[in-house]
Structure formats: C-alpha cells, structure tokens
C-alpha cells in the first residue's frame, strides 16, 4: 500500500497538449502510470500519442474514463480555474504542477476546497510518486526505489536529493509527496505526516522543509502527540541572509519568533532527528530508524 495513489489510480492529465505536459505525460506512461485521459478545452475528440482520448472538460474525463485523479499542467493564468473545474467534477485527488499561480487565485481555490470531496497537492509541486507503482509528476524516475519510507517536502529538487541519498543507501520509498513551495497551497506537512502515520506500509517519515512559514512546526506538534514511527527532517535555508527571502511582515503574523534555529528547535523538541547538513538526510534517518550505518 501507499498513500493517496497506487497502480490503480486513474489519471487525467489537464493541459496535456502543452510542451512540458507532453514531455512529462510520456515519462509517466513509461513509468507505468495509468493515464486514462487528457483534458484540453477545444481539443475534445483528439487523442494523445494516438492512444489516450482527449476531452473538452475534466467532468467528461471523470464520467467517461472514470478518472479519479488529475495532474494539472495548465499555465498560471488558467491554472486555478483548472483546479476549480476538478473540484467541481469531484475528483478525489488533484495534483497541480504549475508554478506561478497568483496567491489571490489560490485563496479562492482554498475556499472552494473547504466544502469539497477533493484533496489538493500543490501548486508549484513536483507531484507524487509511489515507486514501482505510479507517478503523477515531474520527478526523474530512475532515482527511486520501492520501499517503506515516506517523504514529504516543500521543495522539488530537495525531494530528489533526499531520494537519491536513500536509494544510494538501499533504503526504498513508499510514497514521496511534494506539497509545493507556494505560501497558499493544498496538503500541508502535517496532513501528509498524518497519512504516513496511518499507512501500514510506511515504517518511517522524512520531512524536508524550508525556512519561513509554520508548516513544519505544525507537523512537529502532530508528531509529538501521535507518531510512533521514526521521523527525520532537514530544513533548508538555515544560512540564508535574513530578510532576503522571507517577507518583512510574514513573520509577525503569528507573533512568534521566526528563523531557522527556532524551527529546528521545535522539530527536535518533538523528537524529530534533524539533519545538520543536506548531505546527511538519509544518514540521519537511518540512525533514528535503527537501520545502522549506510552503505
């Protein structure tokens, strides 16, 4: 088992005729992802690579091909609309890769999500992969290895980094979820940690975070209360010059102290092993999971 997706997930790719979407849809197919439809308004009736039917709307892809997940590649001006359309079609899982959606559009998406049956991953996300089963995203396939560690991350390339380290150390992954780097987004660290905690096929969790926001602290609180599985983490940006990345007023919203050291301290208080250095993420996990030194 894995979380959110498996080999039976029926995927519709929205915006499938775009250049990046075409590239990644083909890679997903060759990985074994069950892509059952494409969506592109105005191109309904055509096919993708001569095999996959394209529909004018997400609702049709759901009704005719029984798609239960969408993978969205629509460019920023129309991306929030595409998410809204998927919520309206009651698609259970929505994965949005698009980078650059205005926050104001996402605020409206979030209000729509509140009363829906859908779960959103992203936007600005590398997607989700359950190694050996399926991938809905843009991650390089070869770096993964099926296994029992769950990864949740805000950063695409840092997820790949973590996977590379694990695979090199012969530690496989159950599911890797990129929740995306935008400030207004779908699933949070905490949501995904909760799912991993309930997944019998996930033995341990790696959380990859960044400076800014409080997603990681919220997840740590959950870990402290409910999670018995080993949890390791890495927080990127501990040496970033203050004020360059984090907005001026962002930190005062909570009235709490911000900054990498406070974030790391909050994680450690929850019993999470925090890698001091980005080269040691897998090593840190192996130590806390009692797997012994890595090869």
């Amino acid at each position: 088992m894995s979380i959110l997706v498996d080999e039976k997930t029926r995927v519709a790719v929205v915006g499938i005729t775009g250049k990046a979407a075409t590239f990644h849809a083909r890679h997903c197919i060759s990985y074994g992802t069950n892509i059952v439809a494409g969506v592109r308004p105005g191109k309904g009736g055509q096919t993708f690579d001569g095999a996959i039917p394209i529909y004018d709307s997400t609702a049709e892809a759901v009704a005719i091909q029984r798609a239960n997940a969408v993978l969205i590649f629509v460019p920023p001006p129309g991306a929030a609309d595409a998410i809204g359309e998927a919520i309206d079609a009651e698609v259970p899982l929505i994965v949005c890769i698009t980078e650059g959606i205005p926050s104001n559009d996402m605020f409206l998406v979030k209000e729509r999500l509140l009363h829906s049956r859908s779960t959103l991953i992203g936007p600005n996300s590398p997607g989700i992969i359950s190694p050996g089963k399926t991938k809905l995203g843009i991650m390089p396939s070869y770096i993964h290895r099926p296994g029992r560690v769950g990864i949740v991350s805000r950063s695409g390339t840092l997820t790949f980094e973590t996977v590379l380290q694990l695979t090199k150390g012969a530690i496989g992954q159950s599911t890797c979820v990129g929740i995306g780097g935008d400030s207004v987004h779908g699933l949070s660290h905490r949501d995904v940690v909760r799912l991993f905690n309930g997944d019998p096929d996930t033995d341990g969790i790696i959380m990859v975070g960044e400076i800014g926001g409080e997603d990681e602290e919220d997840a740590a609180e959950y870990v402290k209360r409910y999670v018995k599985k080993p949890v390791a983490a890495f927080i990127a940006g501990t040496t970033a010059p203050p004020g360059r990345r984090m907005g001026h007023a962002g930190a005062i919203v909570s009235g709490k102290k911000s900054g990498a050291s406070y974030k790391i301290a909050a994680l450690e208080r929850a019993g999470i092993a925090v890698a001091k250095n980005p080269a040691h993420i897998a090593e840190t996990y192996a130590a806390v999971a009692g797997l012994g030194p890595l090869r």
Partner: peptide
C-alpha cells in the same frame, strides 16, 4: 543550481564547509 530548496541547501552545505557562497 535548480529549485529554491536545492539552491538553499547548496548554500547551507558550503557554509558548513566554511566556504562563502557568492550567490543564490
């Protein structure tokens, strides 16, 4: 580097080795 996360992590790594990053 590509990706904000990896860019930051690379910066962190260099700092850890007492090497001064010229940029992000």
């Amino acid at each position: 580097t590509n990706g904000a996360g990896l860019a930051m992590a690379t910066m962190d790594l260099l700092n850890d080795y007492s090497l001064d990053p010229a940029n992000f």
